[in-house]
Computed example of a mutant assay.
Amino acid sequence: MPTVEVGDLKDDDFLLDVREDDEWQAGHAAGALHIPISEFVARYGELTEAAPQDGRINVICRSGGRSAQVTMYLVQQGIDAVNVAGGMQHWEAAGRPVVTDAGGPGFVV
C-alpha cells in the first residue's frame, strides 16, 4: 500500500478526504476535496475534474482504514494515489490546521 506520513505532506499537496459528512463538518484540512467513501463511486468524476493531472492524490480519513480502500481502488485505476498514514487523527496530533466550512477551528471526531 503506498503510504505517506502527515509530516511529509506539503501545504499545497492535493488531499482527498473520504470521511462521512458529520466527520467533515466537525473539522477537516483546509483545501481538501470531500467525497465520502459511501458516495465515492457515484462521485468519482468530481475527483478526476479536481485532481491535478500529473500530481499525486493523498487520501485521508479518520485513521487510515477507509482511505486505504480508496487508495487501492485509485491505484488499480492507474492513478498515483497514496494513503495518509494515521489519517486526520495524526493530522491533528501533528498540529496541522483543522477547520470547519466557516473557517473556524474544527476537531476530529
Results as ranks from 00 to 15, higher is better:
9 L>S: 07
75 V>G: 06
41 V>P: 05
47 L>W: 03
70 V>Y: 01
62 R>P: 04
3 T>V: 15
101 D>K: 08
9 L>P: 09
55 G>A: 14
37 I>T: 08
102 A>Q: 14
23 E>H: 02
66 R>Q: 03
11 D>L: 10
69 Q>A: 12
24 W>L: 07
59 V>I: 12
36 P>S: 06
45 G>W: 04
107 F>H: 15
100 T>K: 14
25 Q>S: 12
60 I>Q: 03
52 P>N: 13
62 R>N: 15
2 P>C: 06
9 L>T: 05
58 N>K: 11
34 H>Q: 12
57 I>Y: 04
74 L>G: 03
71 T>W: 02
45 G>R: 08
42 A>R: 09
15 L>Q: 05
48 T>W: 13
17 D>E: 07
89 Q>C: 05
30 A>L: 13
26 A>P: 09
4 V>H: 01
31 G>P: 02
12 D>H: 02
1 M>E: 13
68 A>N: 05
73 Y>E: 04
91 W>T: 10
72 M>T: 15
5 E>M: 15
68 A>F: 08
100 T>W: 05
62 R>C: 10
42 A>K: 04
75 V>N: 07
15 L>W: 07
88 M>H: 01
18 V>N: 04
17 D>H: 02
38 S>I: 05
27 G>Q: 02
84 V>L: 12
29 A>H: 04
64 G>K: 05
101 D>R: 01
33 L>Y: 01
56 R>H: 14
5 E>N: 14
101 D>E: 15
20 E>T: 07
7 G>T: 13
71 T>Q: 10
1 M>R: 09
80 D>H: 13
67 S>C: 00
16 L>M: 03
74 L>I: 07
50 A>N: 11
79 I>L: 13
74 L>F: 08
36 P>T: 01
47 L>E: 06
43 R>W: 14
33 L>W: 01
91 W>K: 07
19 R>A: 06
49 E>M: 13
27 G>M: 07
63 S>D: 11
73 Y>C: 05
61 C>K: 01
65 G>W: 01
54 D>Y: 13
57 I>S: 00
1 M>C: 12
33 L>N: 02
83 N>E: 13
48 T>L: 15
80 D>W: 01
34 H>I: 11
97 P>N: 08
103 G>L: 00
82 V>I: 14
19 R>Y: 02
34 H>R: 04
94 A>K: 11
54 D>M: 12
107 F>A: 15
70 V>H: 03
37 I>G: 08
60 I>D: 02
78 G>T: 07
70 V>F: 03
7 G>Y: 07
68 A>T: 12
82 V>R: 10
57 I>E: 05
43 R>H: 11
30 A>G: 14
8 D>L: 13
1 M>F: 11
69 Q>H: 14
7 G>K: 07
17 D>G: 08
52 P>V: 10
86 G>Y: 00
18 V>G: 03
81 A>V: 09
76 Q>K: 14
67 S>E: 01
66 R>H: 01
93 A>H: 09
35 I>Q: 03
51 A>P: 08
46 E>F: 06
23 E>W: 03
26 A>I: 08
15 L>R: 03
100 T>A: 10
71 T>I: 10
95 G>R: 10
